[in-house]
C-alpha cells in the first residue's frame, strides 16, 4: 500500500456486537475508546451495527459517544454467522475506508476479525489491552499480552489499512453517557447477504445464567487450588453472599471441574476489575494475575508466604483459607446486623 493511499483512510470504526438484539458491553467500551482515539486523530468514531430490526439500539450507541452509526439491517444477520457478517462488514469497510477498525475480543469478534483481515489484506492484533496513537506517525499502537501474559508486546500495522484490533472485554472504560445525543444513521444496503450463508444453524442452546457475570461484579471472592476441594467453594459463596458479590476462580479449579468455565479469571478466562477482589488459595500464576491485577483492592489469603499473588495484593494474609473464611464471614454478618 502506498503512502498516498494510506492517507485516503480516515476515521475510527467500531464493530457493534449484538446478540438477541442486545448490544454487548464491550462494544460500548470500544466506542468510548474509539472516541478518544478519534479525537487525537482529529476525526470521528463510527459505530457499525449488523443485525435484523436493530434500529432501536442506535440511541444507546449515540449516548456512549458514536459520532455516526452505520446499520446493515438484514434477516440473514439476525444471528451471528461467520460468512454473512464477514461479507457485510468487509463491504462497509471497502466503501468507507476507515483508518482503524476495532472489535471486541469475544467468541464472535475473534472469529470475524481474522476473516475480515485476511479478506482485506490488512493486519490484525488480537486481544489488545491498550490502544494509543503514536504522536508522530499517527499510527495505532496496539499493546497485548503474549506468552501467556508473561510479556507485553506493542504491535504496529504501518503500511496496511485499516489498522485492526480485537480488544479484551472489560479493559477499556465506558465514558459518561451523553443524554439526548442525536447522530446521523446511515442504512447501508447490501443485496445478496443470504447468498453468503455457508453454514446452517441447526439449534441454539443457551446456558442458564444462574449467577452474576463476574465481569459485572463489584466484589469477587475468588478461589484457587488451595481451597482443597470443590465443597470448600461453599465458603466463598457464603462470603460473597454477605458482601453482595459473586464467586470466581482460577483456571486450575475450572480444569479440575470444580467450577464452571464462565467463572474463570485470567488470560484464557475473563478480565475483571471489581472494587474488591479476594483471592483465596490462589497462587497467582502470571496468567491469572493478567486477568485481575486492575482490581481496585486486592486481598490475598494463601498458606504459602512465597506465593506470587502477594506481589500484587494490597493486603496479604499468610494463613489457612479454610479456617479464616468461616470466621471472616461470621464477623461480617455480625457487623452488618449491627
Amino acid at each position: 500500500m502506498t503512502k498516498l493511499s494510506i492517507h485516503e483512510y480516515k476515521g475510527v470504526f467500531v464493530f457493534v456486537q449484538q446478540i438477541d438484539n442486545k448490544v454487548t458491553s464491550v462494544s460500548y467500551e470500544l466506542i468510548s475508546k474509539g472516541k478518544e482515539l478519534a479525537k487525537e486523530l482529529e476525526t470521528s468514531v463510527t459505530a457499525v451495527l449488523l443485525g435484523f430490526k436493530v434500529d432501536g439500539l442506535c440511541q444507546n450507541l449515540a449516548k456512549y459517544g458514536a459520532d455516526k452509526i452505520i446499520v446493515v439491517d438484514d434477516a440473514s444477520l439476525e444471528t451471528y454467522m461467520t460468512e454473512p457478517y464477514t461479507h457485510a462488514i468487509s463491504e462497509v469497510i471497502k466503501a468507507h475506508k476507515p483508518e482503524i477498525v476495532l472489535f471486541g475480543a469475544t467468541a464472535i469478534g475473534r472469529d470475524l476479525a481474522p476473516r475480515v483481515s485476511a479478506r482485506l489484506h490488512t493486519g490484525l492484533t488480537a486481544d489488545c489491552t491498550k490502544l494509543e496513537i503514536d504522536p508522530e506517525t499517527k499510527n495505532l499502537m496496539m499493546t497485548r499480552p503474549a506468552f501467556g501474559g508473561n510479556i507485553m508486546a506493542t504491535i504496529l500495522c504501518p503500511e496496511h489499512r485499516p489498522q485492526m484490533a480485537t480488544v479484551r472485554p472489560g479493559v477499556m472504560q465506558k465514558s459518561e453517557l451523553i443524554e439526548d445525543a442525536k447522530v446521523p444513521v446511515e442504512q447501508f444496503k447490501l443485496d445478496d447477504i443470504a447468498a453468503h450463508k455457508n453454514v446452517e444453524i441447526m439449534e441454539i442452546i443457551k446456558k442458564t445464567a444462574g449467577k452474576m457475570d463476574i465481569m459485572d461484579a463489584k466484589i469477587l471472592i475468588s478461589g484457587g487450588r488451595g481451597m482443597g476441594c470443590p465443597e470448600n467453594f461453599k465458603l466463598l459463596e457464603d462470603l460473597a453472599h454477605e458482601l453482595g458479590g459473586t464467586i470466581s476462580s482460577s483456571r486450575a479449579c475450572v480444569d479440575a471441574g470444580w467450577v464452571e468455565k464462565d467463572r474463570q479469571v485470567g488470560q484464557t478466562g475473563k478480565t475483571v476489575r471489581p472494587n474488591l477482589y479476594i483471592a483465596c488459595g490462589i497462587s497467582g500464576a502470571i496468567q491469572h494475575v493478567a486477568g485481575m491485577e486492575e482490581s481496585e483492592i486486592i486481598i490475598a489469603i494463601n498458606k504459602d508466604p512465597g506465593a506470587p499473588i502477594f506481589e500484587v495484593a494490597d493486603y496479604g494474609i499468610v494463613g489457612d483459607v479454610t479456617k479464616i473464611l468461616p470466621l471472616f464471614t461470621e464477623q461480617i454478618k455480625k457487623l452488618i446486623a449491627q
Binding site: 483481515s117 489484506h121 490488512t122 493486519g123 490484525l124 492484533t125 499502537m141 503474549a146 508473561n150 510479556i151 507485553m152 508486546a153 506493542t154 504491535i155 504496529l156 500495522c157 504501518p158 503500511e159 496496511h160 491485577e293 486486592i298 486481598i299 489469603i301 508466604p305 502477594f310 506481589e311 500484587v312 495484593a313 494490597d314 493486603y315 496479604g316 494474609i317 499468610v318 494463613g319 489457612d320 479456617k323 479464616i324 470466621l327 471472616f328 464477623q331
Partner: peptide, 30 residues
C-alpha cells in the same frame, strides 16, 4: 502487515502489606 514495535515485561505494582497472624487476628486485620 503487522510489526512488533517493542516487547516488555509489565511494571510490577507496588507491593502491599503482607501479614502472618493467627486466624482471629487475620480476620480483624481484614
Amino acid at each position: 502487515p503487522t510489526r512488533v514495535y517493542k516487547s516488555f515485561t509489565k511494571a510490577v505494582k507496588g507491593k502491599g502489606t503482607v501479614v502472618a497472624l493467627d486466624t482471629q487476628e487475620s480476620v480483624d486485620f481484614l
